[in-house]
Design a protein around this nucleic acid. Structure first.
Length: 411
RNA sequence: GCGAUCAUAGCUCAGCUGGUUAGAGCGCCGGUUUGUGGUACCGGAGGUCGUGGGUUCGAGCCCCAUUGGUCGCCCCA
């Protein structure tokens, strides 16, 4: 490595070849499925004023307090590279008068940035697909949002992940549950892991997620959200689950599934690989492939009117890992110029072929004698070789290939 | 922020307990062979062994630091 060449930034990736094809397959499939459900495409800025994230995610969250790429621009304003989509979309909903379109179903995808230690399925610049339904307070919105997620995963060929579903209740239910959890765990604080002792102050719901063996004995008897649900909240959850059943979306109840961000209410969910499955092995410790929930409280934190909303996001890199490497498609035609005098002829011909809608590649460099072999290695339906002597220069394993029609005179 | 582990050619790796000019396969470039053919052979380019210090008569190999990769904790998609 030359001293003069700068290295790529830690946690960024240069995606190429079969991996890039897998990435593109995820995005293309998402675009197709999103149209099926009539989610509207939106393009969002990659950066926002820092307060957009600070206010919506909460100053104390890990994301805001230590994972954001924030900087002052030349005018002295603090800006931040988006660490997630939802806050920016909520801001746009308020500043652009998108209320008039409510309930608004939108979808987007693109890069996000988080200053974290990279590991399997986790990067500093990563990419997500994202779907949100804004201004819809009824459980049917949750159901539709989960149905699109479920169909997307199936169309990607991912069948060994399951929807883990929970409810956090409405604001009052959630607060009562939270208080009960704090009481419960505080009583045994000394026996909890260091992490959980800290979580007790910052984010007590997260203790339920703990993998530490010291915490495990206390988890089973911890207070359950179901005991604190208001009548409305529990009716809401029942409507979501029966809607999922009607839609044919398989799910399991996950009582310890919580969200780190405070703005979540009611439905919370993650699609997680089944234990022992190929997808579980492919993802390592980053088990969640798609996650989200209802965030009825968010708009108010940004100064808007109370607005119900649900959404999810999924990591494209993680989905691409489950899809597996995909080979680039071979060309319909490769033209090999074995005689440099015929390069002009080749350029004209390949233009005709491409305008006719076929994929075509030209091999006209390197040792003329090795060009044909190079073409064979790359692979194509049809290889046309232009040599010094005239004569048949076409080889194909597929005599029915449509591209042969364009090549009439060369047969 | 914490921990583990790795870093030799474009790629995948070898390099014995530290000992002369650092190797292989693949790939790349050129040539020969074959001549409708993913063949075989010959040759070539390409490495200050991630970087910087140190120990030693001598370091790719040992020590320290640093950067980066990989994996885990935290957190999260």
């Amino acid at each position: 490595m030359s001293k003069k060449t700068p290295q790529a930034i830690r946690g960024t990736q240069d995606i190429f070849g079969a991996d890039a094809e897998a990435f593109a397959f995820v995005v293309e499939t998402f675009e197709r499925v999103r149209r099926l459900y009539r989610f509207r495409r939106v393009e969002m800025p990659v950066f926002e004023k820092t307060e957009v994230f600070a206010r919506s995610l909460g100053e104390t969250t890990d994301v805001v307090s230590k994972e954001m790429y924030s900087f002052d621009d030349r005018g002295g304003e603090s800006l931040t590279l988006r660490p997630e989509f939802t806050a920016g979309i909520a801001r746009a909903f308020l500043t652009n008068g998108w209320q008039q379109h409510a309930p608004l179903k939108v979808a987007t995808h693109g890069p996000l940035f988080r200053y974290e230690r990279p590991q399997k399925g986790r990067y500093r610049q990563f990419h997500q697909i994202d779907a949100e339904v804004i201004g819809a307070g009824e459980p049917q919105a949750d159901v539709e949002l989960l149905a699109i997620a479920d169909q997307l995963l199936k169309e990607l060929g991912i069948h060994d992940v399951t929807l883990h579903l929970n409810t956090l209740g409405d604001g009052a239910s959630r607060e009562a549950w939270r208080a009960a959890l704090i009481d419960y765990f505080r009583a045994v604080k000394g026996e909890l892991s260091e992490e959980s002792q800290e979580r007790l102050e910052k984010n007590p719901l997260r203790i339920l997620d703990s993998k530490d063996p010291r915490d495990k004995p206390f988890l089973a008897d911890a207070p359950k959200i179901d005991a604190f649900l208001s009548e409305e909240a529990s009716a809401f959850f029942a409507a979501v689950t029966s809607g999922l059943d009607a839609a044919g979306v398989k799910w399991v109840r996950a009582e310890s599934l919580v969200r780190g961000l405070d703005y979540y209410r009611h439905t919370a969910f993650e699609f997680i690989p089944d234990e022992g499955s190929a997808s579980a092995a492919a993802l390592g410790s980053q088990s969640t492939v798609l996650g989200g929930g209802r965030y009825d409280g968010l708009m108010e934190s940004l100064g808007g009117a109370p607005t119900p909303a649900v959404g999810w996001a999924a990591g494209i890199e993680r989905l691409a890992m489950l899809v597996g490497a995909r080979e680039e498609e071979p060309a319909d035609l490769i033209i090999v110029v074995e005689d440099d005098a015929r390069v002009g002829e080749a350029i004209g011909l390949i233009g005709d072929v491409r305008r006719a809608g076929f994929t075509a590649e030209l091999v006209a460099s390197g040792s003329p004698r090795k060009r044909y072999d190079k073409a064979v290695k790359r692979g194509a339906d049809v290889i046309l070789s232009l040599r010094a002597e005239m004569g048949r220069g076409i080889t194909t394993d597929n005599p029915e290939a449509d591209v042969l029609g364009v090549l009439g005179a060369y047969r």
